Structure formats: structure tokens, C-alpha cells
Simulated scan of single mutants.
Amino acid sequence: MFRKRIVTALAATTLVAAGVFTAVQAAEPSAPAIKPTASVVPAFDHIVLVMFENKKYSSINGSSSAPYFNSLAAQGAKFTNSFAITHPSQPNYVALFSGSPQGVTDDACPINLGAKANLGSQLAGAGKTFKGYSEAMPSDGYTGCSSGTYRRKHNSWVDFSNIPASANLRNSAFPSDFTQLPTVAFVTPDMCNDMHDCAVGTGDKWLKSHLDAYAQWAKTHNSLLIVTFDEDSGTSVNQIFTAFVGANVKVGSYSESINHYTVLRTIEAAYGLPGINNAASKSPITDVWQ
């Protein structure tokens, strides 16, 4: 019996060496490949973040008025426990960009925050680039509080003196050649298309029209789209819809609790940057990456 086992083992070894089968194939011929979760955030070539307005999670998730939001989230990572920081709008925009509301508690304008640390200044210090694109802003570099359907309160980067005017652009400057995008771009629709003054369906159509091409491109070009909201509809819960779509994203729903600081920390981690202000105490999101 012992001699027979030796002969059998030698025969199997010979077959493996000849490439007839592998040990894994012999033991588990139909076992699917398992992709491990990345322990770090990928170093994306480009990240585009678009912020919508004043809708609670349940107004978007599964809503027949938001078919594109939901189809887009189904192509990436949907966060079922994502939250804004506060109310009203402006401090949330400032918090996402700088890790703190910086003492801002309302929508007063103008807010001037000097050269305090922010995502744009961090990126510049690391040799990366940032640009913000605002729909309906009357001119590049504009610092006024309002014009038509544009509101400065939804444009946080203009509040910081260490962000150059050349980074404060109209949305019409968003390149059709996505390789020309900065490392990180923030996009702000106007007061109608961001759903502040208009229906969910309006914002849904705008998102598809303006960013679906980038979302599809991002999947094969080491890039990422982040879709989120500044705050919910004014409740104390402040739960919002947030989704990541792009390269290296594992499709699925994720239930960990995240907020604007978590999103900022994740963007920072993609480029090896430290967390600033309240983002410093957050761990970047790592379970959604392949």
C-alpha cells in the first residue's frame, strides 16, 4: 500500500510538471478567483467630485425620479450610511474642502478664510493640481456672491487666498478631453441643476448629460467619480446619497458610516497626503477597492 501511494504521488508530480493540471485545479476545478480588498486607496490619475443639494438619502435611493443616480451607483460603490456635517449648505462645502467648517455657521457671503490649509493647497504642495468648476458663474476667477443661478456659497475654494484665481473656473471650462483634467476637480451645478431650486429629475438628467461620459471613461483610465450631496432636506439625521464610480471600484453597497471628512480623507490618501483638521481623525475608505 505504501509503495502504491508513492507511485501515485510521483505520477501526480509528473503531470503537474508537464502542465497537465495544477494542484488548485485538481482540488477545486471550479473555484472562482477572489479579488482581495486593497489596503490603500489607489493613486488615481483624476478624481472628479460633484456636489448636489438638499436631498435626503431616501429621496434619491431607489427613486423613480433619479434613475441615473441609481444606475450610476449600481456601477460602483454606493454608501448606505453617508452623512453631511451640519446645516445649512455653506459650512458643508467648506468642511469637505478643508476638514472643518472654519467657524462658518450660515450662508453669509462673502466668507474669506485666508491661507488656511485645504485640499487644493495640499495638492499644490505635493505637485498635484486642483480646479473647481461652477455652473452659471459669469466669468473665470469670479469672486462675487451671486449672478443669475450661481451662488458663491456653493463654491468653497474661492474663500481661500491660497487657491489661485486660475483654479476657479466656469463649468463650461470642464474639458471634453478628460486627460486634461486636474488631479482633483470639484464640480458645482447651478441652483436649479443641483436640485436646490428644481426637482430631483432635473438634477438626475444634468448628471447623466454632463458626467456620464467621464464616469465611463474613468473606469478604464485609472480615474474616479464621486457623487454626493451637501446636506439632506434639513432633518437632524442628515443622511445623504454618496457613490464612487470608476477604476478599481468593487461594485456593491457599503454600510460603514462615512461623512464629508471621510470622503476628504480618502481623496487625501490617494495622493499620500495627511488628513487635515477633522479629516485627520478619519480613516480613508479602503474596502471598496479591488
Rank of each mutant, 00 (worst) to 15 (best):
T188V: 13
P189F: 03
P189A: 07
D190A: 12
D190T: 12
M191W: 14
C192T: 11
D194R: 06
M195T: 15
M195Q: 13
M195D: 11
H196I: 06
H196D: 13
H196K: 11
C198T: 10
C198V: 02
A199H: 11
V200I: 14
T202R: 12
T202S: 13
T202C: 14
G203D: 09
G203N: 07
D204P: 10
D204R: 10
K205Y: 13
K205M: 12
L207E: 00
K208T: 08
S209N: 15
S209W: 09
H210I: 12
H210C: 09
L211G: 07
Y214Q: 00
A215C: 05
A215L: 05
A215P: 00
W217T: 03
W217V: 04
K219M: 13
N222R: 05
S223E: 06
S223W: 01
S223P: 05
L225N: 00
I226L: 02
I226K: 00
I226C: 01
V227D: 00
V227R: 01
T228I: 01
F229C: 09
F229D: 05
F229S: 04
S233D: 14
G234W: 03
G234N: 02
V237N: 14
V237Q: 15
Q239A: 12
Q239K: 15
I240N: 02
I240L: 08
F241D: 08
A243Y: 06
A243T: 15
F244G: 00
F244D: 00
V245G: 00
V245T: 03
G246K: 00
G246F: 02
G246Q: 01
A247C: 02
V249G: 00
K250H: 05
V251C: 11
V251M: 07
G252F: 04
S253H: 08
E256V: 14
E256D: 15
E256M: 14
S257G: 10
S257K: 13
I258R: 01
I258V: 08
I258Q: 01
N259E: 03
N259Y: 02
H260S: 09
V263S: 02
L264I: 06
I267P: 03
I267R: 02
I267W: 04
E268A: 13
A269K: 07
A270T: 04
A270V: 07
G272S: 10
L273P: 05
L273M: 05
L273I: 03
P274A: 09
P274S: 13
G275V: 10
I276F: 03
N277A: 15
N277I: 08
A279S: 13
